[in-house]
């Protein structure tokens, strides 16, 4: 059981936890948290699975780097929409 495999399995659980969270939670902020967990889970599986026999594979690591940046962009946009939505309710 290399560390790659452990974190890959942890990643699967995170992914499913996040997926369940997005589907079941109703509060927008919490769903954004859940989406981030889902993403992190997928990243863990991507790198963990590739490195399940030990060794270091730079390709999935580069992909995860790209993924993290994309995730933060999406989260920022989602938060902007939530704030705009919540703020706007108050206006009109």
């Amino acid at each position: 059981m290399t560390s790659g495999l452990v974190f890959a399995l942890a990643g699967v659980l995170l992914f499913v936890l996040g997926l369940g969270g997005v589907v079941m939670l109703s509060h927008a902020l919490r769903r954004i948290l859940a989406f981030n967990l889902m993403g992190s889970g997928a990243f863990l599986v991507l790198v963990g699975l590739a490195q399940r026999d030990g060794g270091v594979d730079p390709v999935p690591q580069a992909m995860v780097l790209t993924g993290i940046v994309v995730a933060v962009a999406a989260t920022a946009l989602a938060l902007a929409l939530v704030r705009r939505l919540h703020g706007a309710h108050r206006d009109d």
Partner: peptide, 9 residues
């Protein structure tokens, strides 16, 4: 990530 020796990440 550090444990997975993915320091960049």
């Amino acid at each position: 990530w550090a444990r997975l020796s993915a320091t960049d990440i």
